[in-house]
């Protein structure tokens, strides 16, 4: 935990794995996150639901420091990681992130995509990184794809490689941003299976998703975001069966009307 020590003083009062304290994010005049509070416990799985543009993706990108926040604070293991001027790279390597469009490196084959992080960031030798990568690829059914290039893979395979790439860094926490949104319907299942597997492994995860039934199945808690505000948060049963907020109810009604729940 040298990184944590370097990052700042640990706040004894904060016990959550990840905690957002009144986070504000603006793009120009537009406020995308408006005083968001969220706390993620160790091994907890939280799904962020809400309409497009409600701030789900931005929230995840802020957690990974890809976007600097304008106000508030983000704590990882009780350490304020949103302190301006802080070196971001040591923090990011502890947090895995998977994107909607996979964002694999097209000029590298699968093995290289997976080993580049451990080798360049963690300083592992090629041999060590490759052994680990092969193991992970085998676990996710990608053993025969190690030499393939991203464009030779299906969307589901690419997204699984992207997950493996993030896992290869042995992250303490995973942020998953609409990881099935770009997939053909028949390929969604294979990616969701991977997430189920990760939950079994007790991985702490924050997911932004449109897959309501999956959110209900896998979440410990579900947070409904609307116009940059966490409108309602609770257990999946409570949110989906007995939402308190009228806006939550409206949103879920629209989802049901569209036949998605």
């Amino acid at each position: 935990m040298t990184d944590a020590a370097a990052a700042g003083e640990t706040d004894a009062g904060r016990t959550a794995k990840l905690e957002l304290d009144s986070v504000v994010k603006r793009f120009g005049q537009r406020t995308v996150l408006d005083h968001v509070d969220l706390s993620v416990a160790e091994s907890e799985v939280i799904c962020l639901i809400g309409a497009s543009g409600s701030g789900k993706s931005t929230l995840l990108r802020c957690c990974n420091l890809l976007e600097p926040i304008d106000d508030g604070a983000i704590y990882l293991d009780g350490v304020d990681i949103s302190e301006p001027g802080l070196s971001t790279d040591p923090i990011r390597r502890r947090i895995g992130m998977v994107f909607q469009n996979y964002n694999l490196f097209p000029h590298m084959n699968v093995l290289r995509n997976v080993t580049i992080g451990p080798m360049k960031v963690l300083g592992q030798s090629t041999a060590v990184a490759q052994v680990a990568a092969h193991e992970l690829l085998a676990v996710f059914g990608l053993a025969d794809k190690a030499r393939a290039y991203p464009d030779q893979l299906s969307g589901g395979q690419q997204q699984r490689v992207a997950i493996v790439r993030a896992l290869a860094m042995k992250p303490e926490l995973m942020l998953l941003d609409e990881i099935t949104a770009a997939l053909d319907p028949e390929l969604v299942g294979e990616v969701l299976d991977v997430i189920r597997g990760l939950k079994q492994e007790r991985m702490t995860m924050v997911l932004a998703t449109h897959e309501m039934s999956f959110a209900r199945e896998i979440s410990d808690r579900v947070a409904f975001l609307d116009q940059g505000v966490v409108c309602e948060i609770g257990s999946p049963q409570q949110i989906f069966n007995d939402p308190v907020e009228p806006r939550t109810r409206q949103f879920l009604q629209r989802v049901i009307d569209a036949g998605r729940l």
Binding site: G96, F99, F105, I116, K120
Partner: peptide, 25 residues
Amino acid sequence: ESQRAAARSLGMTSTQTMRHVILPQ
């Protein structure tokens, strides 16, 4: 830009990102 985001999210520095991900492409 998403390539940069992917590389940075792995913890690569901006130099490493440039060297291994952006420049080759």
